[in-house]
Amino acid sequence: MAEHDEIDAPALNGAALDWVVRTGSDAFDDWPAFHAWLEADPRHAAAYHATAADIDAMAAIVPPEPVTPVVVAIPARRRWPVWAGGAIAASLALFLGYGAIETGAHPYAIETAAGAIRTVQLADGSSIAIGGATRLILDRDDPRVATLEHGEAMFVVRHDDRDPFEVSVGGARLIDVGTAFDVKRVRGETRVAVSEGAVDYNPGRDGIRLAKGQGLHVRDGKATVSAVDVASVGSWRDSVLAYENVPLAEVADDLSRALGVDLRADPSVATRAFSGSIATAKLAGDPRLAAPLLGVAIRERGGHWVMSARS
């Protein structure tokens, strides 16, 4: 749909409600089609959000129907009361011609295979680039929250002071302050690097604010802040892995995710620090080509690759 096209408001509102209904269902799994619809025209995302906001507002005013009390666990952020579903559906049906609406608030996982990169466009206008062998949890009802379980992701966030974007990682919280930032979770450690704006790590009395050009490394509960090269933040999206005093064990993990191979660092070199950049596209999937740069030997052994000291 071109920007100059006239818009059919009833049709757009109907489509938006249809997506709200579908994405709120436990059975919904057609996220690529949903994202394609959002990206087709900026008015789609606006209509989707407006419809979801109307449901939020109606959930707050529709009186509950008498029901047998049931104890349930309800997440804290932006959830529609379970009793409001029928009343809201009936009200919206009168306006848009739909007979029913199913509301829900459920997380869903996005997982990538090693060697793959995927970019997700969120309904709020933010985007997330997801590296290989990564598991990210998003929320169908709230595009402003995410959880990185393992792997690496680059967040480019549309900032909203009233509703900041929140990323959970390693038991900690990251809150955006107008931000583009990279988050990595490997070997029980967390790394954060900010290329634009700022990020609050565990905001509060003992929180840490990371500004543009700063990074954070959390290991065994200890957080260390250091300077980072802004140009290198998220460079893995362009097939470049950039490091500053990072152990080779972590480099091996990153190469495994980027190349789609199983590369392990032998204890003899696992803790050795490496600084530099690796152009993964030039490796053609063969980790041995990185050995001279890393100052190690890389050999195939028992179905996987091993990084070890040169003999």
Rank of each mutant, 00 (worst) to 15 (best):
D266W: 03
L289H: 11
D266R: 02
I208S: 00
L294V: 11
V199S: 08
V183I: 11
L293C: 01
I278Q: 01
D266I: 03
T280E: 10
V296C: 06
R191W: 15
T280Q: 04
V228W: 04
E244Y: 06
L174C: 07
D182N: 14
L210A: 01
S195I: 00
L259A: 01
V177I: 15
E196M: 07
G178P: 11
T271Q: 15
H217S: 15
D286G: 04
A172N: 14
L241E: 11
G197A: 02
P292E: 11
G204T: 14
D266V: 09
S232D: 13
L210S: 01
S226N: 15
R272M: 12
V169H: 03
L216C: 02
V269S: 03
Q214F: 05
K282A: 13
A284N: 13
D220L: 08
E244G: 03
S277W: 02
A223R: 03
D206Y: 12
A279Q: 07
A258K: 02
V177G: 14
R219D: 14
A211G: 13
S232Y: 00
V251P: 06
V183Y: 08
F274N: 04
G295P: 09
S275P: 13
L248D: 05
V169F: 00
S256D: 08
A211H: 10
R219T: 15
A281I: 08
I208G: 00
K184D: 09
V183F: 10
R205L: 05
L216E: 04
A227H: 11
A180E: 12
A223G: 08
L248S: 04
A290S: 15
A265N: 05
A198Y: 10
T190K: 00
S195P: 04
G213D: 06
R219P: 00
A198S: 15
D182Y: 07
